[in-house]
Simulated assay, not measured.
Amino acid sequence: MRGVPDIDGTLAAAQVWRGQGRWSQAARRAKRGITRGRLTVAVLTAVAAIAGTAAAMLAGAAPTAGRVLAIVAGASLLLVPVAGRSSSREAVATWTRLRAVSEASKAELYRYLARAAPYADADADAVLQRRYDLLMADAGDLVGHTLDDPATARPLPAVTDVPSYLVERVRWQVDGYYLPAARRAGRSAARIGRAATVLTVLVALLSAVTGVLGDGLGLTAWVGVAAVVTTALVGYGAAQRYEQQHLEYARTADQLTRLRLAREAGLGWGDDDALVAEAERIIAQSNAAWMAKMIEEDGTVQQ
């Protein structure tokens, strides 16, 4: 039967919430490593192109400077595959699994706190413990990634029923996560797009100048450099999937908002179990969609 039991001190909920925090921290750390690796690859590629071209141009006039730049270019190229390891397909797969465990744990806890199916009956604690144990069993090979993260004490979410679930889970996901993340991804995509446009225009201008005036100034070599830098920049943006994330986050925010407003206005979703299941389905589908896309495409993007 339904009710609002005293859940704040339950051992099962506290264990799941602590574990979710560790998995979430591990996922964030893995994602930061991937982002740093991708950015480092892009920077090293650009440095190698710039330094290599400058070295060739200075070889006669300033041989010492030319040799130094040649060393910088060579070292940068050698470091590209090293930096790429932290953003490899395997690293992305590990991050997505860490994130999936974190999100699955969170979803189970919120269902439990809202007392939605399968947590509507008196054995809710046992059901939560059993489902969490199954989740941990499937992720056993990833536990090592969570050992460096302390189990920070934090209060359980202030959810005791479905109305509070709509506020603390659904509304917070929209206002506290999806909309801010959509805006950040949109801004990042726009910045990279503007920078790529500027570099493309620069390539066109350099090509036009050398076509009209000849290559007395040695500009042809810099056309290639600008093209390489543009490719590295666009490749970094594509690997980060900023545009895809912007669209996915915005779409998910819209879906969750419409679901909540329909319930609050009495226009549908009157069944508590169905409402919570639909909200969690939307959140899970959003996570799965763009993480699966990253795994699918990453083998062709990364070194």
Rank of each mutant, 00 (worst) to 15 (best):
V4Q: 10
I7E: 12
I7Q: 15
G9A: 11
L11R: 15
L11F: 15
A12D: 08
Q15E: 15
G19D: 09
W23K: 06
S24I: 08
S24Y: 10
S24Q: 12
R28V: 13
R28H: 14
R29F: 12
I34G: 02
I34F: 08
T35E: 14
T35S: 14
A46Y: 04
A55D: 00
G60M: 06
A75I: 02
A83S: 03
S87Y: 06
A91R: 05
E103N: 10
A104T: 09
S105Q: 07
Y110W: 11
R111F: 07
L113I: 01
A120W: 14
A124T: 07
Q129Y: 12
R131H: 07
L134T: 15
D138L: 15
A139D: 02
D141R: 06
V143I: 08
G144R: 00
H145W: 10
T146H: 01
D149H: 13
R154T: 08
L156H: 05
V159P: 01
T160Y: 07
E168R: 13
R169P: 09
Q173W: 13
R183N: 13
G186C: 08
I192N: 05
A196R: 01
V198L: 07
T200M: 13
L202V: 06
A204W: 10
V209T: 06
T210D: 04
G214Q: 07
T220W: 01
A226D: 01
A232Q: 05
A232H: 02
Q244D: 06
Q244L: 07
Q244V: 12
Q245T: 13
H246D: 13
L247M: 06
E248S: 12
R251I: 12
T252D: 10
L256S: 05
R258M: 13
L259T: 07
A262F: 07
R263G: 03
G268F: 03
D272F: 04
R281P: 12
I282R: 10
N287S: 14
A292K: 10
M294V: 14
D298T: 10
